[in-house]
C-alpha cells in the first residue's frame, strides 16, 4: 500500500481533512477523495484549464498541484462559487449567453473569470481574452464566453 499523507485544508470555506498519496494531484484529490467532481480533467498536463481552482486566492491548474501541497491552504472550486441565494453572476451570464455546449471547460472558465473580476472588475475585451488564454474550449469558439464574462462584469459581480 502506498504511503498516505494526512492533509488539512479549507475547501470552499469548510475545514477538511483528507488522506492522499504523494503522487496524487489536487485534481484527483478533489474528484476522487472529496467527491467534488465539478473540476474537470481535460489534459491533465496544464494546458487546458478545465481543472482550474483558486489556491489561496490565486488561479491554478489543480492537475499541476500535488494534493500534499495544499496543507494549510484554502481551495475554492466551482462548487464554492454559487451561494445559497443563487447562482454567481458569471454562472447566470454563461447560461444567458449560451456560453457552453458540452460544458467540460465551463467550471474552469468560471473559476478563471471569477479570479479576473476580483482583480480587475471592469476588464476590456482584450484583457478578458488575454486572461482566459490558459483555458481551452473545443465547442463554443470562445466569443460567447467572452461576452458572458464582459456582461457579468457590467453587472458588477
Amino acid at each position: 500500500m502506498p504511503k498516505k499523507i494526512h492533509v488539512q485544508a479549507v475547501i470552499n470555506g469548510q475545514p477538511m481533512d483528507f488522506l492522499c498519496e504523494p503522487r496524487q494531484s489536487l485534481l484527483e484529490v478533489l474528484r476522487d477523495e472529496l467527491r467534488l467532481t465539478g473540476s474537470k480533467e481535460g489534459c491533465n498536463n496544464g494546458n487546458c484549464g478545465a481543472c482550474n481552482v483558486l489556491l489561496d486566492g490565486r488561479l491554478v491548474n489543480s492537475c499541476l498541484v500535488f494534493g500534499a501541497e495544499v496543507q494549510g491552504k484554502a481551495v475554492t472550486t466551482i462548487e464554492g462559487i454559487a451561494t445559497a441565494q443563487g447562482l454567481h453572476p458569471l454562472q447566470q451570464k454563461f447560461l444567458e449567453h449560451a456560453a457552453l455546449q458540452c460544458g467540460i471547460c465551463t467550471p474552469g472558465f468560471i473559476v478563471a473569470a471569477k479570479a479576473l473580476l476580483e482583480k480587475n472588475p471592469k476588464p476590456s475585451e482584450e484583457q478578458v481574452r488575454h486572461w482566459l488564454a490558459g483555458n481551452l474550449c473545443r465547442c463554443t469558439g470562445y466569443d460567447k464566453i467572452i461576452r458572458a464574462v464582459l456582461d457579468a462584469a457590467r453587472l458588477g459581480s
Binding site: 496544464g46 484549464g49 482550474n52 489556491l55 490565486r58 488561479l59 491554478v60 491548474n61 499541476l64 498541484v65 478563471a112 479570479a115 479576473l116 486572461w131 488564454a133 490558459g134 483555458n135
Partner: peptide, 9 residues
C-alpha cells in the same frame, strides 16, 4: 511564461 495559471506557480 504560460498563462495566469502557470504564472501563479
Amino acid at each position: 511564461i504560460g498563462g495566469v495559471q502557470i504564472q501563479s506557480r
